[in-house]
């Protein structure tokens, strides 16, 4: 642990950006939670950009966890040498996602009923439970690492995080599969998409946030492989939508979605951070598209009020919740880097 942190370490452009995001996004989040409704939602279109933010950050955290667990199980030193940094990243991203989710949930104080009155038939219950367990496991691993206690628990903990993280990502696919399944059949496809998108965004985040480390090569390799798989899956979906005969189907995939991943595949080695960032934007685009599209189809009596198919554009308050989630994640990762890492990153 490093307590030798001065005020100067916080007077940097990165910290100013983070602070601006926290203040603007935090104010908007508090307003939505306690004062009035400013999100562009209605009784038929209920999950919008704030929820997309949660899914985006939670899946990115899952990807980082999966890569770390893989490294620990396979004893890949390129990964295990960065265990603490990766744990901080995964925890920061997950808490950033939870923050965005909190602005979106109606009654946070009633969350206790998730424990007291659980419903195992509910995918959302599984999503909440699995991510809570994941957070606890990551925190336990971080504490053990800080105390320098490594030994018999390492492998079971790594397997535990691997299984829980994979199950959580698959469950997110189950939750949104039911929504996108309104106009069209999805089956288990979306669960595969969410799991692979977690790996793509997690690997890209490692390339972006841990530059010039031994990890860049390994994470870059994983990023290229998973981006190729992701592009292939998207292509299957695009082809399916092009040939579908389902009446009134709204497609969520577009051939243009492949571009960021193909660019990253080909050009990553020349500018890793830029193309990792482009890959992350590509994942956010795909996740946004499959979360929103299914809800655009109004059901039953709501069609009378909102039309058979709605249109949606995120508004500024919702965009600020995206900023808030990212700012919380960035602040926690920065704080972790400054206080918990032995070799501190240079002040930026």
């Amino acid at each position: 642990m490093n307590f030798n942190v001065s005020r100067k370490d916080f007077l940097t452009p990165t910290w100013f950006l983070i602070a601006a995001g926290l203040v603007a996004g935090g104010a908007m989040g508090l307003y939505e939670m306690f004062l009035g409704h400013v999100f562009a939602t209605n009784s038929a279109l209920v999950w919008t950009l704030p929820l997309v933010t949660y899914i985006f950050l939670a899946l990115m955290s899952t990807g980082v966890s999966l890569i770390l667990a893989y490294g620990l199980i396979m004893k890949d030193e390129a990964i295990t040498r960065h265990t603490r940094a990766l744990l901080i990243m995964a925890i920061g991203m997950l808490l950033g996602g939870f923050t965005a989710l909190a602005t979106e949930l109606g009654s946070l104080l009633n969350m206790v009923w998730i424990l007291l009155s659980p419903n195992p038939s509910s995918p959302i219950w599984w999503m909440g439970t699995l991510y809570s367990i994941e957070l606890v496991l990551l925190a336990v691993k971080l504490v053990l690492d800080l105390k320098g206690r490594h030994g018999v628990f390492d492998l079971p903990l790594a397997w535990g995080t691997l299984l829980i993280a994979a199950a959580a990502a698959i469950t997110i696919g189950a939750v949104f599969g039911t929504v996108i399944g309104r106009p069209d059949y999805q089956g288990a496809f979306l669960s595969v998409i969410t799991l692979v998108s977690a790996l793509v965004s997690g690997a890209a985040a490692i390339v972006l946030l841990r530059p010039q480390s031994t990890l860049t090569d390994t994470a870059g390799r994983i990023f290229r492989q998973t981006a190729l798989l992701f592009a292939g899956l998207l292509l299957v979906r695009v082809a399916y939508e092009a040939h579908s005969t389902v009446v009134g189907m709204l497609g969520w995939a577009s051939i243009w979605m492949l571009v960021p991943f193909i660019l990253a595949l080909v050009l990553l080695q020349y500018a890793p951070r830029i193309f990792a960032f482009i890959g992350i934007l590509g994942v956010l685009w795909v996740q946004y598209s499959f979360i929103i599209t299914g809800q655009l189809v109004s059901l039953g009596q709501t069609a009378h009020w909102y039309g058979a198919v709605q249109s949606y554009q995120p508004n500024i308050p919702e965009a600020l919740i995206l900023v808030l989630g990212i700012a919380v994640a960035a602040a926690l990762i920065k704080l972790g880097g400054q206080f918990l890492m032995d070799e501190r990153p240079p002040a930026t």
């Binding site: 009784s43 038929a44 209920v46 999950w47 949930l105 109606g106 009654s107 946070l108 009633n110 969350m111 009923w113 998730i114 009155s117 509910s122 995918p123 959302i124 939750v175 039911t178 929504v179 809800q295 109004s298 059901l299 039953g300 009596q301 709501t302 069609a303």
Partner: peptide, 20 residues
């Protein structure tokens, strides 16, 4: 009292009869 406002019910009801 138990509702956390997650809106999963709204999304799952095929008849669009739940309001938030």
């Amino acid at each position: 009292n138990k509702c956390i406002g997650c809106k999963a019910c709204i999304v799952s009801c095929p008849y669009g009869v739940i309001s938030f």
